[in-house]
Every structure is written in C-alpha cells, then in structure tokens.
C-alpha cells in the first residue's frame, strides 16, 4: 500500500515561501535579460555608449512603430520632481537615428521642449487657463530621462495676473526657461494638469507631440503639478 504523503503545516508554508522566492528570482533574471544596456556604433566607427535600457532605443523602429513608441518612452516614467525647490516634469529619454543614420538621444534632434498645462477645475468665462513652460531639451546625466524644467512659482504667485510671461535661468548655465500664461484673469490657479508635450526639431514642421489624453492613457491618471508643492 502506497503511503500518502502529508505535509505538516510549517513544511507546507516553507514550501510556498520557496516557490514564491523562486518566482521572484525568475522575474529578476528575466528583467535583467530584457533591460540590459546596449552599445551602439556611430557612423564614424567610434563607439558611443548610451546607458539606456533596450526599450528606449527607437533607432531601429519603423516610422509607423515610432509614431506611438516614442510617446510610451517619453511618458511611462513621467514624474514631478523638484529642482531648486521648484516643481517640474521629468520625462523619459529615448534614442533615434539622425539624418546621417547615427544613433543619438532625442534632445540632439529636438533641442526645444514645451510642457503644456491646463488649470485644474477652473475656467474664467468658459476659458481654462493654460501655462506653457518652454526651455531646452536636456538629457539627464543618467541618460534615462529628460531634465525637468522647474516652474518658479514663488516669482509667479507674487506677480500680478496680468503678467503673462516669465523667464527663469536653469542651473549650471544650461539655458533659460520661458513660461507663458493664457486665460488667467482673476487669480493664479495653483493646481495644473499636464495636457501636452511638444518637442521642436530644427525645422518648423518637424516636431513630436503628445496630448493630455495620451498622458492619462499611459500613466493611468492625469499628471498634476501644484504650485508650492514640496517634493521629497
């Protein structure tokens, strides 16, 4: 007669823990395999290393694939960060091929970026206030992100609402930011939602755009930027 194998409760619990740990390590190994960094050869033969995960390299994407793929890479890790106490949106970096077929970061081809915001929950005479934050497209030192352009809220909130344009210098002489407001009449709205990103190429008809609905579809919710918000 075959003896029925029975696990005592602590043994069963231990087995379950071992199985879960196995799954965890399996996922870790798979992730490591799929997100390893790549080295890419430039046209002149010199090897340039961009320390980005493989999914950020869109240099081999077809034009059709690229239309949507860049939006995912730009937005999937979008987050509000604080620079010198001012909030801004940090986006994801990605790589493309330039006209000489050299793989370069997006900022090399699109040197100017707009972050477009709408005031949340407020309209003045049916018009929702808008804010455009325009500045240089800068790749972060870790090469995985585009640097945030911080909004100088202290300066803005202390100015009259009739002032519709502000400028601010980026740290380390990286350029300047221009901030434009539209439809602000009674008071400065303090809660804003990202409704678009636009990257400008070197010619007027060359740009990459993402709208606010796409931001929500990728992040699962709107991305809010609050004036005076302290971010850890």
């Amino acid at each position: 007669m075959k003896k029925k194998i029975t696990f005592k409760k602590p043994v069963r619990t231990f087995t379950v823990i071992l199985v879960l740990l196995g799954i965890h390590f399996g996922i870790m190994l798979a992730e490591k395999h799929f997100t390893q960094t790549r080295k890419m050869a430039s046209q002149d033969g010199a090897t340039e290393k961009y320390s980005v995960s493989a999914d950020k390299d869109l240099s081999e994407s077809s034009p059709e694939e690229f239309k949507k793929a860049f939006k995912y890479q730009l937005l999937k890790d979008a987050v509000i960060v604080s620079t010198q106490g001012n909030p801004g949106v940090r986006l994801g970096n990605f790589l493309m091929k330039d006209s000489r077929r050299v793989t370069v970061p997006v900022c090399d081809l699109y040197p100017t970026i707009d972050f477009i915001f709408a005031a949340e929950g407020i309209a003045f005479s049916g018009e929702i206030p808008h804010m455009i934050v325009r500045g240089p497209c800068l790749t972060s030192p870790d090469q995985n992100h585009l640097e945030a352009l911080p909004v100088p809220w202290g300066k803005i909130l202390n100015s009259p609402v009739q002032q519709f344009e502000f400028t601010s210098a980026l740290p380390y002489e990286q350029g300047k930011i221009s901030i434009y407001f539209r439809n602000v009449i009674e008071f400065w709205p303090t809660e804003w939602v990202l409704i678009g990103v636009k990257l400008y190429g070197k010619t007027s008809d060359d740009n990459l755009q993402v709208n606010g609905y796409e931001v929500i579809s990728i992040l699962g919710q709107p991305l809010y930027l609050k004036a005076g918000e302290t971010i850890e």
């Binding site: 407020i122 003045f124 009449i185």
Partner: peptide, 8 residues
C-alpha cells in the same frame, strides 16, 4: 472685459 464668470 464687460463681465466675467468664474467656474469651478
């Protein structure tokens, strides 16, 4: 502005 309506 002849008038203004704030909406929340």
């Amino acid at each position: 502005l002849q008038a203004l309506t704030n909406l929340y």
